[in-house]
Amino acid sequence: MPSITREEVAHLARLARIELSDDELDHLAPQLDQIIALVGQVSQVAADDIPPTSHALPLTNVMRADENIPCLTPEQALSGAPASEAQRFRVPRILEED
């Protein structure tokens, strides 16, 4: 029984917005299954009372003063844009409302 099915991989691809080909799905499912078996070893460590670590170092309260710093020019901001129009990023029609 694999830990991850082809259908689940297809679902993940939709979540991750990657249009995987059928061929890739065929390959990825068993590969991910193997990798998940490896990484699943973390569950062998009994750690109920262990706090999780999200950051490498225990820093807190790093903040900056509410001050302005110079912006990019609109030309710089748009310099990498695949398409632009009227000083805005031009994107294909959006299907879903946010």
């Binding site: 901001a77 805005r88 990023f89 031009r90 994107v91 029609r93 959006i94």
Partner: peptide, 12 residues
């Protein structure tokens, strides 16, 4: 509106 639009322009 979003329906029927050909494309969108984004201002960040």
């Amino acid at each position: 509106r979003i329906q029927g639009a050909s494309h969108s322009l984004v201002d960040y």
